[in-house]
């Protein structure tokens, strides 16, 4: 595996509360990983530390072997690590296309111009291509604030991908979305990301989505990594079943496999 990101004994405390500790994770180029864990298990804390939102209390974060520990969010983004959010972070009063254009503008220009007009045919077409890739081009001229949560999630993810990141963190990409839309959203975003060589780590509570889209799974429990490996192995892991998934999920899956027993 060509490792692009490695965390070494990563720890974060809030006063006496240990939100994450002893986190040692390696992520390879182009890999797709699912992260599971109950609320408060440390999943988002991990993402926040790697993306610079939180500074680790101790430990190291290495990107291509270079330490990025304690770097600012924007500097980490510029290195090629981007993220989407559990609650989409968008420019709500602007249109969808303007959101993407702003993202493209910032991604392209380290020192943005103060006199050159932003909108031209080239950037408009590029933004439309991105929207088409995420199948939301029909909302281009709509104000973000009036759109459904599922669409907002896709815009949030689309914005995170405009700088062609090497590593993308998706924090619960299907949370707050109806059960019917979940698979659809994941299908759209995985197919949109397939054409890139971006490694994707997504946090998810829905085990069906994990089983379908994550070849590798990391399970968090009480701030530590409980299991890390092939999806099948992790989801079968006794501790993971007990502390993270709950045995119910497997009973249900087994029942479905056996054709259903009343």
């Amino acid at each position: 595996m060509n490792t692009i990101l490695e965390t070494v004994d990563l720890k974060r405390t809030f006063g006496a509360v240990v939100a994450a500790s002893n986190i040692n994770i390696k992520i390879g180029a182009g890999e797709v990983l699912g992260v599971i864990g109950s609320n408060g298990a440390g999943k988002t804390t991990f993402v926040n530390m790697v993306t610079g939102y939180l500074e680790p209390s101790s430990g190291q974060i290495l990107f291509h072997g270079e330490s990025i520990t304690g770097k600012k969010t924007r500097d980490i983004t510029r290195l090629g690590i981007c993220r989407s959010f559990q609650i989409p972070q968008l420019f709500m009063e602007l249109t969808v296309i303007d959101n993407i254009i702003i993202a493209l503008t910032v991604a392209r220009e380290v020192k943005p111009s103060m006199l050159k007009p932003t909108i031209n045919k080239e950037i408009f077409d590029e933004a439309m291509d991105i929207l088409r890739r995420f199948q939301i081009d029909q909302y281009a001229e709509s104000e973000v604030g009036v759109l459904a949560q599922g669409i907002r999630k896709l815009i949030d993810i689309a914005m995170a991908t405009v700088g062609d990141p090497e590593l993308l963190f998706l924090d619960e990409p299907t949370s707050g979305v109806s059960a019917d839309e979940k698979m659809q959203i994941m299908d759209v975003l995985i197919s949109a990301l397939k054409s890139t060589k971006t490694a994707v780590l997504f946090i998810e509570h829905d085990m069906e989505i994990i089983e379908k889209f994550a070849p590798r799974v990391i399970a968090f429990y009480e701030g530590t990594v409980l299991a890390d490996g092939d999806a099948a192995d992790v989801l079968e892991n006794e501790k993971v079943r007990e502390f993270v998934i709950g045995k119910e999920f497997h009973r249900q899956a087994e029942t479905e496999q056996q054709g259903g027993i009343a």
Binding site: C82, F91, I102
Partner: peptide, 25 residues
């Protein structure tokens, strides 16, 4: 200036600073 990338960033500033930082500025 308001039509420029820097002006656009100003508009975005009013809406969501976290997103701006995560976009790399």
């Amino acid at each position: 200036y308001l039509r420029s990338p820097m002006g656009f960033i100003g508009e975005a500033l009013r809406e969501n600073e976290i997103r701006l930082e995560y976009l790399g500025t």
